[in-house]
């Protein structure tokens, strides 16, 4: 019979092939990607934000999105979170008596929620049909509804919970901030930054924004300093105001390999809904595993070869013969 020997052979063949792939994996490990040098982004400074929500209204208008209601009277656009129809929202942290702005206890603070435009976005790695893409120059994470199959893997993958799906529609799309890339050709930039009255949302190259962010957290709280508005490097709209009490942390500088949208806050980021993320992107790990196993299809073909070899020998006495022989 030789069954045991064959069993071992089969086991060894497949095992060897599998090992070959796994051993090769460290060589193929994909590093977390960095921001493109000319990457565009936003700097949101919670200490400057006055909660006017001009950015929320402007975003709706710029993206031609309908109002969403969460009150019994359908009077205001009152989304509670970003959604398939709301790409930007100002949320409020509240604690105790809410006396002092940007204070953790008995204080309150604002936080902008919109796409972070990661250097190494999970949504782009996850999307099976390249409907989610990262522009190699601007670094904007864009969405193409014509390719999207609506699997919502991007929704599941994003650690910030940004791509959102329009569940109420039979032809629902994914909705997310694309940094107003459709407005660039008319000389416009991100609508939220364009309308922000205090420069709490500032548009520009992320490398410049990071320098600006570092300058701000180094400022002495309460001492007047200059703050630009609108577009960094655009026409000067700066004004002077006392500097806020910043946490010494530029959110997005290192998280998941860095994001192109940066945030400053006076209240700990965990409390205002920003997840605590490691410096390595999950996309890098996922793609490392994926390419270790399937890079150039070496592993699958090796295993297939081994299996075919074994099967070719074992299948010989096929059903046909057993058919005719009966019992």
């Amino acid at each position: 019979m030789g069954t045991r020997r064959d069993f071992l052979k089969g086991f060894l063949a497949s095992g060897a092939a599998a090992t070959a792939g796994v051993v090769a994996s460290p060589v193929l490990a994909r590093e977390t990607r960095q921001r493109p040098p000319e990457g565009l982004g936003l700097l949101y400074d919670a200490t400057l934000c006055v909660g006017c929500k001009a950015c929320v209204a402007a975003c709706k208008q710029a993206n031609n999105n309908p109002a969403e209601f969460s009150t019994t009277d359908h009077l205001w656009d009152t989304p509670l979170d970003t959604s398939g129809y709301t790409f930007n929202i100002i949320k409020m942290y509240r604690n105790g008596t809410m006396d002092v702005k940007d204070q953790e206890t008995n204080g309150y603070a604002f936080m902008k929620t919109s796409c972070m435009h990661c250097a190494d976005p999970s949504c782009v790695s996850a999307c099976p049909v390249s409907a989610m893409t990262k522009d190699p120059v601007t670094g904007v994470v864009g969405y193409n509804a014509d390719k999207c199959i609506g699997c919502r893997y991007c929704v599941a993958a994003c650690p910030f919970g940004i791509p959102k799906y329009q569940y109420d529609s039979p032809t629902g799309r994914i909705g997310k901030c694309e940094l107003c890339r459709h407005r660039y050709k008319d000389g416009h930039y991100s609508a939220c930054a364009e309308v922000c009255p205090t420069g709490a949302t500032l548009y520009g190259k992320t490398s410049d924004l990071l320098v600006e962010a570092k300058r701000r957290i180094a400022l002495k709280p309460g001492v007047p300093a200059k703050f630009p508005r609108g577009k960094l490097g655009g026409p000067d709209q700066s004004y002077e105001t006392p500097a806020g009490k910043y946490l010494q942390h530029v959110y997005g500088e290192k998280e998941y390999g860095g994001t192109q949208v940066l945030k400053l806050s006076g209240v700990s980021f965990a409390k205002v809904g920003m997840p605590d993320l490691p410096p390595d992107a999950a996309a890098a790990m996922s793609e490392t595993i994926q390419h270790a196993l399937y890079g150039n299809l070496i592993m699958p073909f090796a295993v297939l070869g081994a299996m075919t070899y074994v099967a070719k020998r074992n299948v010989k006495p096929d059903d046909e013969s057993s058919d005719k022989e009966g019992s």
Binding site: V56, A67, D77, T78, K91, R94, G273
Partner: peptide
């Protein structure tokens, strides 16, 4: 329809 002077919390039940 524009946003009102009220704010969603950091975490909203959905």
């Amino acid at each position: 329809v524009a946003p009102p002077q009220q704010y969603p919390r950091i975490v909203e039940e959905q």
